[in-house]
Every structure is written in structure tokens, then in C-alpha cells.
Amino acid sequence: MTTPLDDGPRSDTALDAAPCATDFRATLTLRFSSTPRGARLARRIASQQMDAWGWPYGTEANDTVELITAELAANAVTHGRVPGRDAELRLVRDADARHVRVEVADVRGERLPLPEPDGRPLADGGRGLVLVVTLAEEWGVTPRSGAPGKTVWAVVACP
């Protein structure tokens, strides 16, 4: 697993993401299995990456990115799953280290997320995306670049 730094050197670990002197925009990309175990891995790696980028465990920024990653990854493996096809997590820290963009891609482009719960008070699902909408500065869905499917993304302010 590697952590590419946009056009910069590549690292042998997912957690070594310090930017080089000429490139201050850092990116982590991780493919994970479309299973609940894969979604848990994505959540844990996101939290570890936030810690490596300077937002320690237990801080608001780390917890928010971890929760948003958990919700988007869970949605990807629940609603976007195609057996044998992986999902993908991508975290991007901006040059000023003030925002982190969380992207989770899956291969089911026809199944778009709906942020509204279905209205039933005891519904089993439908609340995860409401949390994302509430916690993120902005969010959206885009077609997956160069592959079938979609990418659901959210931007988190990180003081």
C-alpha cells in the first residue's frame, strides 16, 4: 500500500504522509474490500492518517473525518457492492492544512445516495448520510473517473 503525494515521492506505508518541501498537498488512496471488514479498515486508516497529518486521535477533526469515512464506507459496501469489486477511499489534505476531503468510490453509479431519512421513526437505516450532511462543510456525488460507478465526497474543516 502506498501513499502518493501528488507527483512527489511514494511511501511504503499508508501512514507516512508528510509532504515534501515542494508539494504541500498530501493524498492517501486505499482500495478496500466491499465488505463490513473493509469498511472498518477504511475508517481506522482514515483516523490513523489524520493523526499522522497532525490531528491526533480524539480531536474534533480526527473524529469527524473518522465518522464521515465510516458512514461513506458503510454505504459503499451496503448499497454500492458488486461481488469481487473493491471500493476506494481517498483522503486529500489541502495545501493550507485547513480542510480534508474524504472520497469513497464504489462501482454502482446507478444507486445515488439520498440524504433524507425515509420518515419512519424506527427505520433501520437512512441516518448515516444525514450525519455526513450535518458534519461536512459540503458534500456531493460525482461519476467515478475512468471506471464505472460513483464517488461520494465530503469536505471537512480541520482547525
Rank of each mutant, 00 (worst) to 15 (best):
A26N: 12
T27K: 02
L28N: 09
L28M: 05
L28D: 05
L30R: 07
R31G: 07
R31L: 09
S34E: 05
S34D: 09
S34T: 09
T35W: 00
R37W: 01
R37I: 14
R37H: 11
G38I: 04
A39T: 05
R40Y: 15
R40D: 15
R40G: 06
R40H: 14
A42M: 05
A42T: 03
A42Q: 03
R43Y: 03
R43H: 09
R44V: 04
I45C: 02
S47W: 00
S47K: 08
S47R: 12
Q48Y: 10
Q48C: 13
Q48A: 14
Q49E: 09
Q49C: 13
M50L: 12
M50I: 07
D51P: 06
A52F: 02
W53S: 04
W53A: 12
W53H: 02
G54S: 11
P56M: 00
P56C: 00
P56K: 00
G58N: 05
T59F: 03
E60L: 15
E60W: 15
D63G: 10
T64E: 02
V65W: 12
E66H: 07
E66Q: 14
E66G: 11
L67R: 12
L67S: 11
L67Y: 10
I68G: 05
T69A: 10
T69C: 11
A70T: 09
L72P: 01
A73E: 00
A74D: 15
A74Y: 10
N75Q: 10
N75H: 14
N75T: 10
A76Q: 01
A76L: 01
A76F: 03
A76D: 03
A76V: 06
V77N: 00
V77E: 00
V77W: 04
H79R: 01
G80H: 01
G80S: 07
G80F: 06
R81K: 14
R81V: 07
V82P: 01
P83I: 07
P83M: 07
G84C: 08
R85Q: 14
D86A: 08
D86G: 03
E88T: 03
E88N: 06
L89I: 03
L91P: 12
L91T: 05
V92T: 15
V92R: 15
V92M: 15
R93L: 14
A95D: 13
D96C: 03
A97K: 11
A97C: 08
R98C: 02
R101D: 14
R101N: 11
R101K: 13
V102Q: 06
V104K: 03
A105N: 02
V107D: 15
V107Q: 14
G109P: 02
E110Y: 09
E110D: 14
R111A: 12
R111C: 08
R111Y: 06
R111H: 14
L112A: 04
L112Q: 06
L114G: 03
L114V: 11
P115R: 04
P117K: 06
D118G: 08
D118L: 05
G119S: 01
R120V: 07
L122P: 02
L122M: 12
A123I: 01
